[in-house]
Computed example of a mutant assay.
Amino acid sequence: MDRRLALVTGASAGIGAAFAKIYASHGYDLALTARRAERLERLADEIRLAHGVETLVVPADLADPGAPEQMLQHLTAHGRSVDALVNNAGYGVTGGFLESSWQTHETFLRVMLTAPTELAYRVLPGMVERRFGRIVNVASLAGLIPGSPGATLYGAVKSYLIKASQSLHLENLASGVHVSALCPGFTYSEFHDVNDTREQISRSAPPWMWLGADEVAAAGYEAAEANRPICVPGAPNKAIAATAKMLPDEWALALMASQGPRFRGKV
């Protein structure tokens, strides 16, 4: 195939769907993956009609340890290799660490940490060989600020994605492969509906703190093209990230202890 292929995980809605449309608008064929096959099919049809690109639907649950390898084998069977990878699939587990079972946490870590790492590991050799590649790891502003009570592993996993992206960025400076971590704050998507925190978050976070999924994805695409290792979209989010860097740890943790529960549905 003459066109490059972008693999987008968590593509059925929100930031993932927005990334799919952006890459298609730049001439990429798409491999769309998520658990909801019907929604993927509708999105694939929409994008195919709008941009005239090939769209491959690969339903998968990244909680399955074999899913990353099976997804890529499916693409290989169709004669395709991945030129751009958007690791977007994700969700949040609310409540304190001990309020959820270990199985819940284990599944979360597999989807949010192991799967994106494995996908990057598996597609990177081909990108290096072809001297072209784009990897966007959708992290979060939560990975740039101190941990807070509730959603215990979310910020930790996002911090991991940021650090891993920085390292991969440096390792591939001369390879033609660009690696970026996208760190959005509050984004209009289904994220807060899935974990049933929409009402609380909407009351706690003022409108100026929110961005649309299209804005976030566009910023991520531009950062990857420019090979910027970290992208924090939106002026308020940039200010929060900068402030978190400057605050002494003791002050920052005290702030998170007092304010974190507001955004976790605890007050």
Rank of each mutant, 00 (worst) to 15 (best):
S189V: 00
G150K: 03
P146D: 12
Y121W: 14
R134T: 06
N195T: 03
D196M: 07
P206D: 01
V179P: 03
V157L: 12
G176K: 02
L144E: 08
P233G: 09
S180Y: 05
A224K: 00
E199K: 08
A213D: 10
G143T: 03
P207M: 07
Y154T: 01
E199W: 00
G150P: 04
S165H: 09
E225T: 04
A139W: 07
V232E: 06
S167R: 14
I201C: 03
A224D: 12
D214P: 00
H178W: 01
V128W: 08
D214E: 15
S167Y: 13
W208R: 14
G176F: 03
I240F: 01
C231M: 15
V128K: 15
A139Q: 10
G150D: 03
G126F: 04
V179C: 09
A181G: 08
L182Y: 06
R134Q: 14
D214Q: 14
P149N: 08
V179K: 04
I145C: 09
S180L: 05
L153W: 10
A156F: 07
T197I: 01
E171V: 03
N172A: 06
G220T: 06
V136T: 14
Y188L: 13
L144G: 10
G185V: 06
L141V: 10
V179Y: 08
G220Q: 06
I230A: 10
E199C: 00
I240R: 01
Y221W: 15
K238F: 05
